[in-house]
Design a protein around this nucleic acid. Sequence first.
DNA 1: CTACGGATCGTCT
DNA 2: GACGATCCGTAGC
Length: 200
Amino acid sequence: MILKKDFFEHHAKTVARELIGKVLLINSNGKILSGIINETEAYHGFTDDACHGHKGETERCKSLFKDGGHVYVYFTYGIHHMLNIVTFDRGTPSAVLIRSIIPKTGKNELATNRFNKNYKDLSSNQLKTLTNGPGKLTQAFKIDRSFDGVELNKKNKIWIEDQNIKIDKEKILLTPRIGIDYAEKSKNWDWRFYLDPKAL
DNA sequence: CTACGGATCGTCT
DNA sequence: GACGATCCGTAGC
């Protein structure tokens, strides 16, 4: 079942937790690429000094201010795209960063996009690192700025489904967010959620 | 296994 | 002009 607007129109922390175990799907030239989300981070509001929009809207981060159920993609380090799911209400910068995915369908395409190889020819290290980071998964799924601002309500280009994968609540672990040491107030908030590796 | 530095460029100050 | 919600290769243990 495709997730609709009402799923996303909550605090980013709520959505970040509930996205664990949901399935991200991309239509890549008619081929469906998909994977199970197993790591997320919440970025929410004007008081979260790690949130790109906390000081106000800019050209880059304007999608963060949309209503829940859109996509925010930005480019960083001169190399990587980051995939975010916009949450909460219009006017408040709020989103969930997708940090890791477990490949499900279209594995040959994912392997080609990352390593220019068939899935069966991947080394054990390449298998492990196929989509287990925010920059790696956007490379594998071919997600770039053309996805920025897209709505998640149709099975067009990108959408998220509940495929009835059951996740025990105690298997979702919390830590502070990664790579935001520059943040002063918020760097120690436990806004990163990930599925216990032993759970699947 | 961990530690470190270079890559690379759009965005904001 | 500085820097980043990262990744990868290399070096050392």
